[in-house]
Design a binder for these strands. Sequence first.
DNA 1: TATGAATGAGGATTCATTCAT
DNA 2: TATGAATGAATCCTCATTCAT
Lengths: 223, 223, 223, 223
Amino acid sequence: MTNSHIMNNSQIIRSERRRKEHEARRRVILKAAREVFFHKGFMDATVDEIAERCRLAKGTIYLYFGSKEEIYISIMAEGMKLLGRELGRLKDIDGGDGMLVEHALSAYYGFYLKNRKYFRIMFLSSQPDLRARVSDDLLKDCMETARQCLGIVGDLVRKGIKRGIYRKVDPWAVANILWATVNGIIMSYEQDPVYREEIAGIELEKMLNEALGLVLNGLRAKG
Amino acid sequence: MTNSHIMNNSQIIRSERRRKEHEARRRVILKAAREVFFHKGFMDATVDEIAERCRLAKGTIYLYFGSKEEIYISIMAEGMKLLGRELGRLKDIDGGDGMLVEHALSAYYGFYLKNRKYFRIMFLSSQPDLRARVSDDLLKDCMETARQCLGIVGDLVRKGIKRGIYRKVDPWAVANILWATVNGIIMSYEQDPVYREEIAGIELEKMLNEALGLVLNGLRAKG
Amino acid sequence: MTNSHIMNNSQIIRSERRRKEHEARRRVILKAAREVFFHKGFMDATVDEIAERCRLAKGTIYLYFGSKEEIYISIMAEGMKLLGRELGRLKDIDGGDGMLVEHALSAYYGFYLKNRKYFRIMFLSSQPDLRARVSDDLLKDCMETARQCLGIVGDLVRKGIKRGIYRKVDPWAVANILWATVNGIIMSYEQDPVYREEIAGIELEKMLNEALGLVLNGLRAKG
Amino acid sequence: MTNSHIMNNSQIIRSERRRKEHEARRRVILKAAREVFFHKGFMDATVDEIAERCRLAKGTIYLYFGSKEEIYISIMAEGMKLLGRELGRLKDIDGGDGMLVEHALSAYYGFYLKNRKYFRIMFLSSQPDLRARVSDDLLKDCMETARQCLGIVGDLVRKGIKRGIYRKVDPWAVANILWATVNGIIMSYEQDPVYREEIAGIELEKMLNEALGLVLNGLRAKG
DNA sequence: TATGAATGAGGATTCATTCAT
DNA sequence: TATGAATGAATCCTCATTCAT
C-alpha cells in the first residue's frame, strides 16, 4: 500500500496487469452470460446459472457488473461493437465498381449470419424495465456505436452522391432509412417461426436484396 | 333434469347474456392490464396491480386468462386487430389519384400516433420466454391478423401495377418490405429517447416520408 | 307450501322421493370423489375435479358435503361399511369345522383385494389436519362401524373359547390384536413399492397366513 | 489461481468447518420443522412458520431442503434412525434369560413413549402425493434404516431358534410380522382419541403385552 | 335446489443482491 | 479480490368456499 498516489514503475506495471486481468475476467463472464441469455432469454436466465457456467462465485459477478440488466445490455453493446467493426472495414471503399451501399448490406447480412443470437437481445433493449436499471453510460455507449455504424453508411451514401451514383439526398436520412429497413426486415424474420414460414414465405436474403434493389432504384441518379 | 344438455329458450338467452358479460369482463381486465403493461413493461407489471386496477380479485383474472403472459399477448393481439381495422378501410381505394401505398403509410402512421404504447408491446412479442407460456391459438391469431394487414398492402401494390403506376414487382414481397421498413423506422424511433434525439435527429414523420419517397421512387414505372 | 307441519300423504311420498334423490346424488358425488381421491391423494385432489367428474356445479357439492375433508372421510366411512358388511356374513359361523378367526382373516383379505384403494384413504384418517375439519358425527360413525367389525371378530373368539378351540383369553383384546396385526401387515405392504419388493420380499398372503398361524398357535387350547 | 480445484490445507480445514456448520444449520431447521409438523400436521404447516421458528429467512430453508415435502420426509428418516439406534443396542443380547423378542418390544415401546410425535409422521409417509416430490435417495435411506431395524429383530428370532427357545420358523417373516403387529397396534392406538378411549378401552401397554404373549406363545418351542 | 362466477387468503418457491469472511 | 451463505421481498397461481341469481 502506498500512502501517496504517485505510483512507481512496478506499480504501474502491476496495475496494468490488474486492468488486463479485470478485462479478461469480464470477458469470461460475458461469454458465460451470452450463452445463458441466448439460450433462455432475459427473464428466464439467472445470475446463478451465469456464475456456474463461468465457475465464479455469484458475488464475483457483481464485482464486474452492477446488475443482471447491466450484463444483458453489455452483451448488447458488445454485439453493436462487433457490427461496428464489420462495417468499419468499409471505410476505404471508394465505389469504383458502382457498389457502395451494397457493401454495407452485405457486411450487415454477413454479421447477422454469424451472430444471429445477438439480434434478439438487441431488439429487447427497448424494454423500459431493462433500461431503468442500467447506467446511462452504458446505454450511451451503445448508442455511440450505433451512431458510428450509421455514420459509415452515411459516408457511403455521401461518396455515392459525390461520384454521381446517387441522387442528391440527405445522406444521414438515407443511412437511417437503410438501417431501419434492414433491421425491420431481419426483425420480421427473426420475430417468430410462424411468421417466417407461414406469413412471409420468402427467404430472408432474397427479401433483403429486393428491398435494397427497390431503395437503390429510387436512390440512383437517372440517366 | 337440468343435467340434460338440451337447453330451453330461457337458458339459451341466459347463456347468451353470460357470454356477453364474460366478454365485457374480459375487456375490463384487458383495459386495466394495458394501463399497467404500458406503464411498467412486462416484467415489472404484476397481476396484483392489474387486479387492483380493475377492482377484481386476483383469482378472477385467472378465470379469464391463463397466465400473465397470456394477458400480455392478448393485448398485442388487440393492437394488431386495431391496426388491421385501420388498414381495412383502404380496401376500396382505387388509386385514381395516383396514391396507393401512400394511404397505407398514412393509415399506419395515424394508427401509431393514436396507439403508440401498443408498439412496445408488439415488439416484445418475439421474446421466447413469453411465447413459451402462451397458447398457440393466441399466437396464431396475432399472426393471422398481421397477414391480413400485409395482404391489404399487397393488394394496393397489385392495383398499382395493374393501373401502370408501379413497375412489375412481386406485390407480396414489396408489401413485406414496406411493412418491415415502416416498422423498422418506427421501432428505431421508439427504441429510446437518446437515439431519437441525439442520433437520428430527424423527425419521425419526415423520415417515414423520405423512406416512402425513396421506395416509391424505385417502385414507380418510368415515364 | 303448507303452513302447518302436518304432512299429507302425497307430501310424505314426495319428501320420501326427495330423500331418495338426495341419497342418490350423494352417492354420485362420492363415486366421483372416490375416483379422484384414489387417483390423486387428498392434497392433490380438487373439488373442481370432483364436480367436473360428476357433472355437477362446484357449489352443489357443498350442498351435500360440508368440506373437502368431509367428502374424504365419508369415503373412509363408506369403506368401513363395506368391510363391515363383508364381516357381517360371518355372524352365523359356528366353528364346527374348527375354523373361526380364519374366516375373519379370509373375509378381510378378500375385502382388501377387492378394495385396495380404500386402504390408503383409511390410513390417512389419523392426520390431525383432516380430523379438525370434519364433524364429530361423521368420525363417530366411522368408529362405530369399526367397533362393529371388531365386535364380530370378538364374537368369533368368544365362540372359539366356548367350544374349547381357543384358550381362555380376553376376546375383545384378542380381536383388537388380530385386527391391528392384519392392518399392520397390510399397511406395511401398501406402504410403498420399495418396501414391498426390497424389504419384505414376502408375499402378502403368505405373510398374513404365517401371522395368523403364529397367533392361532398361541391362541389354541392345548390338546 | 483459486480457480484450480486443488485445495491447500487451510482450505480443507475451512471446508471442513463449512460442512459442520452446514450440518448444524440443517439440524436447526429440522428441529423447528419438527415442532411445526408435530403440531400442525403436514398440510397445515407452512414453510414460513418453520423459518420463523428457527429465525432464518425463508429462502435459507431452501438452501438446505429442496421442498416442504423433503423436510417432512427428512424428519421421518430421522425418526427411523432414532428407532434404529434404540434397537441397535439389542445386538449383543444373547437370550440367556430366555428373553429375546421381549427386549425388542420393550425397546420399541420405549422409543414410542419418548417419541410419540414421530409416529404420525412416519405413518403418513405412504401418501403418494408426498413421495412424488421427494428424492429417491431420501426415501431409500428411510427404507434402509427400516430394513436394518427388521434385521435386528430377525437376528433375535434366529438366536432364539438356535438356543431352542423358539420353534423353527422363518426369522425374517416373523420379524416382519412382529414389526407389523406392533406398528398396527400402536397405530390403532394413535389413530384417534375416540378410538383409543371408546373403542379399544384397553391400555396400550397391556395390549402390546397381550399381543406379544400371544405371538410368543405360538412361537415358543414346546416343552 | 342448483349454479358457477367471484373471491382472496394463502403459500411455496425463486433469485437478485448483499456482506461477513 | 473472491467467495457463497444468507437474505427476504416479490410474485404467480391455486382452490376451498361463498353467494347472488
